[in-house]
Design a protein around this nucleic acid. Sequence first.
DNA 1: CAAAAATATTTTAAACTTAAAATATTTAAG
DNA 2: CTTAAATATTTTAAGTTTAAAATATTTTTG
Lengths: 156, 156
Amino acid sequence: MNSILPESFSETSKDQLRVWLKILKITGRIKAEIRRRFRDEFQTTLPRFDVMAALYRYPNGLKMSEISSQLRVSNGNATGIVDRLSLDGLVLRVAVVGDRRANLVSLTKVGQEVFQKLAQRHEEWISQLLGDVAQDDLQTLSTVLDTVNERIRNDI
Amino acid sequence: MNSILPESFSETSKDQLRVWLKILKITGRIKAEIRRRFRDEFQTTLPRFDVMAALYRYPNGLKMSEISSQLRVSNGNATGIVDRLSLDGLVLRVAVVGDRRANLVSLTKVGQEVFQKLAQRHEEWISQLLGDVAQDDLQTLSTVLDTVNERIRNDI
DNA sequence: CAAAAATATTTTAAACTTAAAATATTTAAG
DNA sequence: CTTAAATATTTTAAGTTTAAAATATTTTTG
């Protein structure tokens, strides 16, 4: 239902804020649900999934710094997640020949198999949770997001 | 609900996943930027701002459990944030007469004044970051999000 | 070559986050 | 009234997150 608020162009920033808070609320709820399902069904977490997804796209491995820049998290953050994935035998750190500072991190065979299962379920979950959104609206949403993304890129 | 063929379904779910990842990427970037500005300009954090915003809407105070349900965070999480706000003199815990289990948390006078400054800048930032999005697109985005929100409510 | 700068990563400290367990208190049931 | 259940909150343990400092190595520069 549309509210009875007066149409005022000076209210734009309030409208923007309202939409932004709505975005946060909904993405938060979806993320919480995905997190819950990963925990219940696979005893894993979203950050672990994100790191495994990045590594899956690069079978030759990624340096630690490449993982953090890909996922836009701090180096220290990546270190901790990779440490724990490594303890579970899902990823491997391999020394880079010619640069003793760097490591190449890649999924183990088991890690690849586990990720494929996770990714399939994850895609099903997202599809289910976004299920009622029309194809047209999805396209609009995507375009709007591109605009925002461009704005941010030029702005920050 | 979704009675289309497996192939079409598969394509759609990939599209949905793509849009979802785009949403995550952009909201993540905006949140990171807001977090950075809160830190640099006010030496505070987004979670603190969120708690203060909830308390500002309820001048008579909120119980700890009301804070956590409003913000959809765990009780323990709220405890920590309120603890730290309290150390800074921005919020106050007041015993509830007739129920020695509960506390009413509210902003102090200083807390209210600080929040007003934070909220004004926050609104400016969001407006700036979403600045290029047309009013129509904003309305579409809002409607799409309502649809998703409804879907989740019925689904989770 | 030697010192300085740049790069790659880890460590650290503080805050945030969750789920689950623990504590305290109130309400409901028998 | 007494016990059991429900409610309100905090504590705990493990993981995530960030920024900044520390360590190690490589590259650049004088």
